[in-house]
Amino acid sequence: MHIVVCIKQVPDAAQVKIDPITNTLDRSSAPAILNPYDEHAVEAAIAIKKQFGGKVSVISMGPMMAKDIIKKCISMGADAGYLLSDRSFAGSDTLATSYILTMGIKKIMEADPVDLVLCGKQAVDGDTAQVGPGIARRLNFPVLTYVQKVESIEAGTIIVQRKMDNGYEIVSCPLPCLLTVEKDISELGYASLPEMIRAAKYDVITWGVNIIAADTTKMGLKGSPTSVRKIFAPEERVGGEPLEGDIKTVTGILVSKVMEKLS
């Protein structure tokens, strides 16, 4: 079982300030941390490794400073850490970021096939939740979002719980696949001192654009068609209720509910 976890360095949301005039995040003042969802993803990967054996690799795209979060994952128990870092990556939007990460993961796969890719549900700074599905599409892996629990992994199939607005659903999916995870997926551990020392000594594997053989027109500002018009919090959806039972009962209830509305 080889699990790759995508990790992003983000400004500590607890300490970030919002520029009152431009409404953008002032990233300079806040310390950089491992995206909290990604931290839970790494911990979940370690738990799967403990149960089924195998190996956990982490990968991040970002500046050299992102080595810090890779080393943190090593202290948590990851076996290998890759940093994709190159001037030509700067300014990438979610489209380009997904492309670059995919190329990195493909490079890892050349030496060591991958069974499972984990991403956080979203990055707490960008908040788009697009990168995970973007990678899955490019790797041609099925994707399951909002995963809150891994129920089982057996005979090439993974069964997970996906968090819904009010409840969860249980889904099964063939491996390899990609999951984006909620924080409930794992409890964070506390690294031992020998693990901290191993991490401090660890040499992060750093790859530039040439090594992952990526197309430079698909990255950086040139490869990033997104433009931000406005940032706002969407209104919460109201109503809706989960229906329980087998397919037959559920469809029955559904039809009668619809009929009720129509009459």
Binding site: Y190, A191, S192, L193, P194, M196
Partner: peptide, 9 residues
């Protein structure tokens, strides 16, 4: 002695 598991150095 540190607060970490196996934390003696």
């Amino acid at each position: 002695r540190t607060t970490r598991p196996d934390g003696d150095l």
